[in-house]
Nucleic acid binder design. Sequence first.
DNA 1: CCTCATGCGACACCAACTGACGCATCCCCA
DNA 2: TGGGGATGCGTCAGTTGGTGTCGCATGAGG
Lengths: 338, 338
Amino acid sequence: MVERSDPKDRLFRLFALLRLIPREPGRISTPELYDKLKAQGFDMTRRTLQRDLNVKLSAEFPLLSHEEGNTNYWSFSKHAPHWDFPSPDLPVALAFLLAESHLEKLLPQGLLQLLEPYFEQARAQLEIQQHMPPARWAKRVRALPNGKTLLPAKVDSAIWTTVSTALLKGHSLRVTYLSRSKQQPSEMTLHPAGLVARHSQSYLLARVEGYNDVRQFALHRIQQATALEAPAEIPDDFDIDHYLQGSLNNPAPAEMVELVADVSPQIAWLLRETPLSTEQSLEPLEGTDWHRLRAMVPDDKETLWWVFGLGENVRVWEPNVWVKIIKEKIAKLEKLYV
Amino acid sequence: MVERSDPKDRLFRLFALLRLIPREPGRISTPELYDKLKAQGFDMTRRTLQRDLNVKLSAEFPLLSHEEGNTNYWSFSKHAPHWDFPSPDLPVALAFLLAESHLEKLLPQGLLQLLEPYFEQARAQLEIQQHMPPARWAKRVRALPNGKTLLPAKVDSAIWTTVSTALLKGHSLRVTYLSRSKQQPSEMTLHPAGLVARHSQSYLLARVEGYNDVRQFALHRIQQATALEAPAEIPDDFDIDHYLQGSLNNPAPAEMVELVADVSPQIAWLLRETPLSTEQSLEPLEGTDWHRLRAMVPDDKETLWWVFGLGENVRVWEPNVWVKIIKEKIAKLEKLYV
DNA sequence: CCTCATGCGACACCAACTGACGCATCCCCA
DNA sequence: TGGGGATGCGTCAGTTGGTGTCGCATGAGG
């Protein structure tokens, strides 16, 4: 990303400058900006930089300057429109909006908020580029939620910001956490080691101060978070994939099993268009219009639920454990519904 | 989106200029650019514009100029990095990457490709902003697929581009389509009326030339597409929501029913964190640790499947139809698994 | 073949960008 | 409490470089 830019070029310097300024909760001081620009090979006086900020940019862009003592801090207004180029064309903008409606069901609210400027821009592009007044995209495009998905847990956008920054910068973290077992929230210091998004929930992997093992903390149960100065100390041998494999709470997600089952024609059609996995085979069964399905799938509860949900449209043969579980389920269900 | 910009300001003019230039498959001529800038209130000579493009911009940005006859056409190189500001900070960049890993399971390949520059930029930001060499995000963040999701059907990115543009601009379309019932692909002219994304598949709603009714066409079964000049002629009274309600293939997605059921403690916990719907209540049942669930859910097959998949952890009471279906399912399953 | 539109080199003018200097303010540390 | 250092900003002079004008070459269309 080292830009070529003759050090002399003014225009380019302003571009680089704008890119260094963060959005509102964040801010950056003039001297800091100066150093970073210098580091990128731009050569100018401090005075010039000050002038750029004061005169040129804040006149044209929604920049906020916050004076603190002697130094000026700069940030983009929270509602500053998003500028980018190449700007999204129609197909890209539409892709964004479809993505948004899917993500609503997957990402916690706070996270989605952070992406909002992008969706906003996509909407704006569609409005602009469409010369025909009647042909409004809103009237023509729908994304239907997948019925079965649950709504994601709510995560405060500020908490996400603090936590993810601490994780990536390697800082430790002071949090107020409502653990699943306890009723009362408790305060503790965490040393973040990783982040896992799973089932519309996100978990922070971290070591609690005073303990040695890494545990997981649901983001939506963190009620307060403050970044600390102290660097995060995590076990040297920590490896996220290894942890995920071995963690008990997270039933080994990476483990795959071969699913062998007979499926009804409708399900066969469904699976042919949207396969269960990249390696999947469907072969017609003799003497019937059913198909024999083989696919590698994760050996977890969700997949089993999904298969079981198909009910009488699927007859599972492998793995054996599943067959057993299903039979038990049927027996229990019978009792339940008398 | 009318920019304030004193007509005189150069910096702002260049921004506006850059935003007008499309990415590679698209292109725009100098005179066209001139008109658009004029329309936005920028005042300058043609000569100035030419200089901007030739001298300033193409020196600093990966711009392609294509001379055709007398006129110059401009576009961004296909691999031009994405510029934007405020540029994504750490939390936003991370949000993008989580979004990506989720979308991989939901959006057709071709669509995702269009968003690639954004993800790319997010990755770049993470690399840059992270001073600590060992703390690479890739080692610390994982998104685990939801076991139950199916893989999206493949849609060619060029086809998506053509189809979505035609839809939004109101052009008709010549396609080669492999229909579900026929073995051989056939060619036809479509008049696009809408687009529906559902269950990791996307459908174009369109009228076939020579017929009067609007039907749906799975994007991944369109093998070829060319935009035509002729405007799309769709029935005046076409209304996408109405269509979706009435369409037989798409069992009325908007219809909601109240689900009443008893759920086991584990499921209660799950639902408390990731609710089934925004309005949902969970009340403890006397004499047991189960809970009574009430929620408004879509009355479709997927939701029913999902509920049924929970098996003996749920006892459904309402809607009555579901109870009836579940009982039948149990009976059929019993036969299947002897 | 004529006309019109576009691109571009050259030139001259002037706006504005830049560095230098100096002063006021504030922080921090002794 | 006082002094050193850093930051912000007003001012000024020099010069860079952005701008319009003009003219010519080239290619498209009638």
